[in-house]
Amino acid sequence: MRIGELSERTDTPRRLLRYYEEQGLILPDRAANGYRDYAEYNVDRVVQIRGLLDAGLPTRIIKQILPCLDKPRAIYFPDATPEMIATLETERDRMSDRIRCLTRNRDSIEEYLGAVLDYNRAPEPVA
């Protein structure tokens, strides 16, 4: 598929797809005319990349772990350095902190919303 179709199917701007290509996160084939030709699996790959970016992982880490995400039952990472492991642990802990914060905020909003809805459903006092 061409870049426009991948952009539409993933709701990702073309410029961002080209950036992912520059970073080595996605690798399109090239047609004889030089146009990018993306395989079907790139749809899921782009969605996965965006999710990891939204979670706060930098592209340099995403590039290293993407091969492991294709086959999660067969993870083998012979070139994992102590620095990379420490970075991943730090990122995991940072995500856990964000999850706790988001959960606390969601629960507060839910409590407030419940109170507002209960108030709005309460019968009018009879005079």
Rank of each mutant, 00 (worst) to 15 (best):
L113T: 03
E22D: 09
L52T: 01
T81P: 03
L17C: 01
S108A: 14
P82V: 00
R94S: 06
N105H: 10
R100P: 02
I75L: 01
D37N: 12
N33V: 09
A32C: 09
N42L: 10
P82F: 01
V126Q: 13
R98A: 08
A55C: 08
E22A: 02
V116D: 02
D97W: 02
F77K: 01
I26M: 02
L27M: 11
D29I: 02
A32H: 05
C101Q: 15
K71A: 14
Y119E: 11
V46Q: 07
T59S: 02
A122V: 05
E91I: 06
G56T: 00
V116T: 11
I61T: 15
G56F: 06
D44L: 15
R73Y: 08
L113P: 03
L6T: 01
L52S: 02
R94I: 00
I26T: 13
F77T: 13
Q23T: 04
E21H: 06
A86S: 11
Y35T: 01
Q48S: 12
E40Q: 12
L16W: 06
A31M: 08
R73H: 14
E111Q: 14
E110R: 14
R121F: 07
L16N: 13
P125W: 03
E89P: 05
A31W: 00
P82Y: 03
E111K: 13
I109S: 12
N42I: 12
E22I: 02
R98K: 14
T90D: 11
L57N: 01
Y19P: 08
V47G: 14
L25A: 04
G51I: 08
E40H: 14
G114Y: 06
L52Q: 07
E22R: 09
G24D: 02
M95D: 03
P72Y: 09
P125Y: 03
T90H: 12
C68A: 11
Y112K: 09
N105D: 09
P58M: 04
R30H: 07
D93F: 04
I61A: 11
L27P: 00
L57F: 07
I75Y: 06
R18H: 10
D54R: 15
R18E: 06
D70V: 13
T12E: 00
E91L: 15
Y19K: 07
E110C: 13
R45N: 07
E124L: 15
L69F: 07
E124H: 12
R94Y: 03
L53G: 00
R60I: 12
L25W: 05
L69N: 09
D107R: 07
T103G: 15
E124M: 10
R121H: 12
E8N: 07
R30E: 03
G24M: 04
R100I: 00
A115K: 12
A122L: 10
L113V: 04
R36L: 04
R106Y: 06
T90Y: 03
V43A: 05
R18D: 04
I109H: 14
T12P: 00
L52N: 04
R92M: 08
D118N: 08
E89R: 15
L17D: 01
I109Q: 14
L16D: 09
D79R: 11
M1H: 04
S96G: 12
Y38G: 01
N33I: 10
P72M: 07
P78D: 07
N105P: 03
M95I: 15
K71T: 09
D97H: 10
S7A: 11
Q23V: 09
